[in-house]
């Protein structure tokens, strides 16, 4: 199998940083949940709760 981490004998090749990021599903899960939570949900909720209540 031609994996991305194929090594020369005796010379271990360092996995590139970005590939290590893509190979870590839990880091991706953290990013994929945090970004929309902050940018879509929390920002949106903050704007909605700042709408002044109508006075009777």
């Amino acid at each position: 199998m031609s994996g991305p981490q194929s090594n020369e004998p005796g010379q271990p090749e360092r996995t590139p940083f970005f590939q290590r990021v893509l190979d870590n599903p839990f880091l991706l899960l953290f990013l994929g949940v945090t970004i929309p939570t902050v940018v879509y949900l929390i920002w949106g909720i903050m704007e909605i709760i700042q709408i002044p209540l109508a006075s009777p």
Partner: peptide, 25 residues
């Protein structure tokens, strides 16, 4: 498996991550 997961599995990881946010909402 060795190295990185296959691309199809990576696509499924993407779907599962979006699903976690979706279903939590």
């Amino acid at each position: 498996y060795q190295g990185s997961v296959p691309l199809v599995t990576f696509g499924a990881i993407t779907a599962a991550i979006i699903a976690v946010f979706t279903l939590a909402c």
